[in-house]
Each structure stands twice: as C-alpha cells, then as structure tokens.
Design a protein around this nucleic acid. Structure first.
Lengths: 203, 203
DNA sequence: GCTTGCACGTGACATTTGTCATCCCTCATT
DNA sequence: AATGAGGGATGACAAATGTCACGTGCAAGC
C-alpha cells in the first residue's frame, strides 16, 4: 500500500514540482497540495495521510505551527519539514514541534522520496549539512520576549508601535531591543533583525 | 529544429522543475542550467542558445543585469524573465534591459512553454496580472541616488556606514533617506526599505 | 534559604535619526 | 537667458533610538 502524502508550500511551482516528482514514485501517492499552513491539519485528517511535507516559511500559519497542529490532529501522521537553505535555527524548533525530518529543498528528488519513506517508517531524517550548521550556530540566544520584540520590530515600526503591539512600555521595548542587538552582534535594530532572520531565530 | 534554452535560477528545485517540465516539450531542448547570473551570457554563447529564462532575484549577478549581458553577448538570443510574484517594479526595468518577456513562476507549465515559444518567435510576452500591477503601482518614485542610498541602507547599517559606502557626506545621506521615506510613505528608514523592496524598486 | 535568570518597569543620558532651510553646481528644457 | 530638476553639501533643531543603572517580582536550581 502506498504512502499517502500531503504537500504544503506557498510557491506553486515548487509545490507542483514536488508533487510531480514524488508522485512518480510507485509507492507514494500525493493526496493533497496546499498553498499555506492553515488547512494542513484538516487535509491530513480528511485524506488520512501518512506523511505531511511542509515548507517552513509559509503565509498564514507557518510550517512549524502547522507541524504541531498536524501532530495534535493526527498523531499517526509523520511530518517532514523542507526548507530553502541555511536557517539552522528552525531545525530544533521543528523537531520540538513534532517533526520527524528536516531536509533542504535542493536535495535531489531521489533523496527526497527516500526521506519520505524513512519518516513513514518512523525513522528520523535530518540533512547532515543542516545538522552541522545547527550545532555550530546553536540555538537562538534570545529570550522569548526578546524574540517577540525583535519580530515585532522586523517590519520597520517605531518603538511606540512595538510597545503597543506587545503591550509593553516603551522603555522595556528599548531594553529588549538593546539586549537583542548585543546578543546578535548587530549595531542597529535593523541589523539585529537581519541577523536573527538569517539564523532562523525569528520564524 | 528545437528551441535551445538556458535556464538560470538560484533555487535548485525550481531550476530542476523548470528544466524537467520544459524539457518534456518536443520542441524545446534545455542546453544549460545555472544557479546564478554570472555565467549566463557565457553559457548562452557557448551553447548558441535561442532563449534564456532568467530569475530576477539571484545571487551574484541579478537577473536584470544578466539579461543585459545576454543581449550584449548574443543579440539574437531572446530573454524571458521569470519572477516569484508581485514586484511590479522589475517589469519595466527588465524590458529596458532587453528582455522580451516577463512571467510569474506559478503559471502552469503549458503556458510557460508557450511563453518560451512566443519569445523565440520574436513576440513579447507579459503576464497580464503583472502588467496591470505595474500600471497601478507605476515606476519607482525614487531618483537614482535615492535608490542607491536606500539600497545601501537595506542591510541595517548606520548613516556613517552608508555615507562611507556611497562616498557621500552623512548629511546628504540623511537627506536622501528622508526623501525616500517621504516618497515611499514609510515612517522609518526600515519601513521605507521594506516598501521599496516589496515594490521591486531596489534590486 | 539563597542565588540566578528572566520579565517588566523607570529615569537619565548621549547619540543617532529625521526634518528643514538654504546654499552651490550642472544639465536639459523652454 | 531663464527655469527647473537633480546631485551634493552644510548647519541647526526636534524627535527617536540606544545605553545604563537601578528597581521589582517570580520561578527554577543548588
């Protein structure tokens, strides 16, 4: 019996390519394709899927939250995360959210299919390059609030905006931003945002 | 005789998908695949390609510069730009750089193949959605220097950094940033950067 | 029980930004 | 010849930002 696979990726071309390539495998059947994370858990339940292949960066519900939702809604369904490169910070968080595997998008199709089979068998699959990066780059040095504030700062709003959206005093916001800048090594708020984004510390 | 096609896109999976899908067409032959813009012109010449399919956003040489390079090196080779959505600002610049067509990545494979054929025949192909967006969003309101300065600001450096990299006085940099913020409608430098990036005014 | 780390806050302070007015120079248009 | 737009610059000023010191309370760990 073939592996029932759900694919979610916001880029239609990538999604289509994944579906086409993996659909060619005799033991894999693509039962649903989604463009964002919101409907993934429902789709998994509806089609009683065995494996969900999720992009990390998606509009609406992000891949990691979607992974958690899938695990809650259908504990028997394994989750395989795919991402575009780098961003080692996502790895650990994805694993904590219940993902069984984590691979980068530009691995050859054969290996992607193999990864799907592995997670379906209950094994864990982690791209070795990504794992190494994850070890050297390590976890996010930011505390939860620091991360929240930095994320709120990432679209370019003022301290007042951030304070309102995070329900904090402006002074506190400035303190957190200052701490985030110190920990990331950025000399400005924008630089700190960029560094944190590049390392997958923001999501 | 089949159309000789060169494909350049930094995402391996997309590149592979494009090559696979278009390679299936009987009248199209994919003669080279590149991961960045630097070698495109050389590859076009080497394989005497008829059409080059270029992503706009690539590391190294960007798609628009690569398009110009191709036109210079092989005037008989048509250029078809592909992009990920939105960013209407790129359209006009791509056309000025000598591109014959501009389509978004998530158009169906059939239409992509058709677009390749059309540009090969010397016709122009422009995604209608993109064209409409381009008309409403219009050109970049930024002057050349304003764009340069904003681009230099886009990685989060201080005014002093920007001034050094652009060989301008700090006051002038602040003036340009101020003008850019006024024209984009951003309330901070970072917001202006974001808006300009979203509209494809920076590249 | 004591220390440590984090969340949250205040207030003061030096710097950095963003804004504006006002120059100069050049080049294209009229 | 005059006008206007853009590139470049200066200086002054208000507002925002970044830094620090110093508080409080709470929870976890030794």
């Amino acid at each position: 019996m073939s592996i029932r696979l759900v694919i979610a990726d916001d880029q239609a071309l990538v999604r289509g390519a994944l579906a086409a390539l993996l659909g060619l495998e005799p033991d894999i059947e693509v039962v649903a394709e989604l463009g964002d994370g919101t409907g993934v858990a429902a789709a998994v339940v509806e089609h009683s899927a065995d494996v969900a292949m999720l992009d990390v960066e998606m509009p609406g519900l992000d891949g990691i939250s979607a992974a958690a939702a899938v695990r809650r809604a259908a504990p028997s369904c394994r989750v395989l995360m795919v991402t575009t490169f780098g961003r080692p910070g996502y790895l650990k968080r994805a694993m904590l959210a219940g993902a069984s595997g984590f691979v980068v998008k530009d691995t050859p199709a054969r290996q992607l299919a193999e990864a799907v089979r592995r997670v379906h068998q209950g094994l864990r699959v982690v791209d070795p390059v990504l794992a190494a990066e994850s070890l050297t780059a390590g976890d996010s040095p930011l505390t939860e609030r620091e991360g929240e504030v930095l994320k709120a700062a990432s679209d370019g709003g003022t301290v007042a905006d951030i304070a309102k959206s995070a329900m904090l005093s402006e002074g506190t916001v400035r303190n957190y931003l200052s701490a985030a800048m110190a920990k990331t090594g950025g000399r400005t708020r924008a630089e700190a945002v960029r560094i944190a984004e590049d390392n997958g510390w923001l999501l």
